[in-house]
Amino acid sequence: MTELEFDFLRSYLKTRSGLALSAEKRYLIESRLGPVCRRFNLAGLGALVTALKGSRDLALERAVVEAMTTNETFFFRDRTPFDLFRDVLLPEAMARRATQRRLRIWCAAASTGQEPYSLAMMLQDAAARLAGWHVDLVATDLSTEVLEKAKAGLYSHFEVQRGLPVQSLIKHFEQTGEQWRISASLRQMVDYRPLNLLHPFDALGTFDIIYCRNVLIYFDAPTKGDVLARLSASLAPDGALLLGAAETVIGLTEKLVPNAQHRGLYVQAPAAARAPAVRVLPGLPATDTGLRRVVGL
């Protein structure tokens, strides 16, 4: 791969998925895009660049972008954000929404589904308290390939043994050959949709709780700031945003601030500091009158 080809691919990926690759990440492009070249019968990365420049082959474009995403995830990853959901975020949100009896939760980088399903298991455990409630659990990812796996809910022996207590395994999964399939009732709780975080997502509506973990780390600072500002606009005024352990809002947006008690939890900045974000809310889709009620508009 020549310098020019490397530069082209870096800028191509930056535009398409926000992925910011430093100069020393050549190896990552070579190892991830080599298989794409073979799949599309291209002689090498040079031929791939020519093909991307030459014509708009949507299948190739998608394959390139998806091959460069990192989809590592596991059930109850890092544990704390899920304990926080069960012990603090869910009970508090239920107290605040006791009149509306509606909760909206969004996993913004859902990958192969382990994160939304972990939340779904906790919601199911709280089913008695949630009787009569309407809970939306929306899960999005850039990669349609991982979303297909998430929807199928089929996991390997290794995937179900990282982070998932064995009691949850036998309660929520059934064995199918060498694999384990998550229960239909949990699959039905999650609304999977393809979404590129670089594109507008205000049409999804407003959420009480957003999990956006371990995706911002791949973006450069301006992109992080832009995505965070729009996440703030999609977050209810009293909502909660969860980021990954290596991520923060500090220095990237004025619209969100860290919560003092819980690491990884971010909330809307006090009104004075975030005046511009409020103006975004009237931009909610006209059909979302229910949501306007939820957020008190």
Binding site: R162, P165, L169, Q175
Partner: peptide, 28 residues
Amino acid sequence: DVGAIARALHAGADEYIMKPFDRDIVTA
């Protein structure tokens, strides 16, 4: 199989590792 796992838990096991295992599984 699920039956064996359930029996083990009933007999007082705290967790259950299905072979083959690796370091990540044991750590988790």
